[in-house]
Amino acid sequence: MQKKRRIQKTIYYIVVTVIGFLMIYPLLWMIMSSFKETNTIFTTASSLIPETFTLDNYINGWKGFAKITFGTFFKNSAFIAVIATIGTVISSSLVAFGLSRCRFRGRRLLFGAVLLTMMVPAQVLMVPQYLWYQKLGWVGTYMPLIVPYCFAIQGFFVYLMYNFIEAIPKELDEAAKIDGCSYFGIYARIATPLMVPSLVTAGIFSFIWRWDDFMSALLYINDAEKYPVCLALKLFTDPGSTSDYGAMFAMSALSILPVLLIFVFFQKYLVEGISTSGLKG
């Protein structure tokens, strides 16, 4: 019996390890290839370990395209993702607090609208929104990539925070109200400190989504100076570009680094966000 269990356990770990290795193999291959000499990447594609370890790909890749370095692209991406995320978190928390703590006419209707925005996927809005932003003169600027998110239009985040606030005891508000605190005081001094975990969860998801938001960048940003990283990476795959695969792998690896770091340090929040409210990863 003992022996049978041990065998079962061993099989379990072998299966789990093998599948796990297959799961991250593509990523390992990308990272390892980025340290190989660029002309050997495909001749040695079946082995992971570089024969000679080199950083040339990173140096060459960083130079970017047409005198615009990847430094610019990373700066652009960081700017878009950080501002849009701050806007998302602040606006969503305000809306969630209002829906949870204040009774006013049309509250239920608005809550329904929040849930509805969760069901309307951003992709089908691509053409309608483009035509509208075109009218507003936003094409070619960062406005479409940032401004809408500062108005809490991602129902997921509002819903996540709403559930969080609902779990905070109402007695705290009552006590503050008796002490002469306005609703804005309650929001700023009582609710916000208590909802930090949900703000972090929303913040990291928003950051990852905005960092990877390829389609909006493709639609609205024409000027290479303004390209975010994801759009710059696409230049590597364009027909006619000099195919320096080493540089491509190096910059691809760098582009997922921020998300990897979030994954390593904030895994708890990611897991919570997904398993409690079904945010997609």
């Binding site: 796990g20 593509p26 990523l27 990852i208 990877d212 990476l233 590597f236 691809s252 997922i256 997609k280």
Partner: peptide, 16 residues
């Protein structure tokens, strides 16, 4: 196991 789904939508992975 979860890592691919967090980075899977990125251009980097598509290029890869």
């Amino acid at each position: 196991y979860y890592l691919p789904s967090i980075i899977g939508g990125s251009v980097a992975v598509a290029v890869l």
